[in-house]
């Protein structure tokens, strides 16, 4: 029974990886927000299944927080921001979809190669979980780097966090996981509020040389 639950949890983690890859190709902001909601739902499912499999009821709190805050509240708020700031038509990429996905695949392979050999002693199950989690983290970082828009960078950041929580939930008996997940959620909520208050649309990484000059604050 426990084995089946863990298999299902791993399925959820694999689903997160697929969603992460899809997010890299998504050009519309609405689409990105929806994909992010799906990402968080899969995280909630994976963590809940881990909780049942490990007999660790406190992880259910983490799953519930992921579901309520990241799966529902934050996507809803981001949706409103996109509408209010009128940025839903933006096509914003630094590099094209093709190269981004190739980079993403390379990072996924890298994650597996990096994590698998050293964790040989930790058991096959933990190794796969860690590999998935690291891949999700790296893909989230890639998303942050390849986007210019503040909303997509925040989505990248929260998907990185989802990967971290996945890693922490997979490590059996790791203390403070619940506290981490709650703190992360509060943090993301603060950032979303910040974006809305300051109307941050685009931040650094533009290809416009003048903007770069201004951003470095150093003109001759």
């Amino acid at each position: 029974m426990e084995g089946h639950l863990l298999d299902l949890a791993r399925l959820g983690a694999a689903g997160m990886l697929v969603v992460s890859l899809t997010m890299l190709t998504q050009e519309r902001l609405f689409g990105l927000v929806h994909l992010y909601a799906l990402h968080a739902l899969l995280l909630a499912a994976a963590v809940a299944l881990q909780a049942l499999a490990q007999h660790a009821p406190h992880l259910l709190v983490t799953a519930a927080v992921a579901l309520a805050v990241k799966g529902l509240a934050i996507p809803w708020a981001l949706h409103r921001i996109v509408v209010r700031l009128g940025i839903h038509r933006d096509l914003e990429k630094v590099i094209g979809a093709g190269p981004t996905v190739l980079l993403g695949l390379a990072l996924t392979v890298l994650a597996v190669l990096v994590v698998t050999p050293p964790t040989a002693g930790a058991g096959a199950l933990v190794r796969q979980d860690l590999a998935f989690a690291l891949a999700v983290v790296l893909l989230g970082l890639l998303l942050m780097v390849t986007r210019r828009n503040a909303v997509s960078q925040v989505i990248g950041f929260t998907s990185v966090e989802n990967g971290l929580i996945l890693a922490a939930a997979g490590a059996r008996g790791m203390p403070l996981v619940v506290e981490f997940s709650v703190a992360f959620s509060v943090l993301v909520a603060m950032i979303v509020v910040g974006i809305f208050l300051f109307r941050i649309r685009e931040r650094f990484d533009t290809v416009d040389v003048h903007a770069l000059d201004r951003f470095r604050g150093e003109r001759p």
Partner: peptide
């Protein structure tokens, strides 16, 4: 505007640090 840009850049790069250090901590725990 420059202050907000600096804060945003700090946040984005800082979060990369956040993520990697956390992953390192989980690995140490394992």
């Amino acid at each position: 505007e420059p202050a907000l840009e600096a804060a945003w850049k700090y946040f984005i790069l800082g979060s990369v640090g956040i993520a990697l250090a956390f992953f390192g901590t989980v690995l140490t725990y394992l």
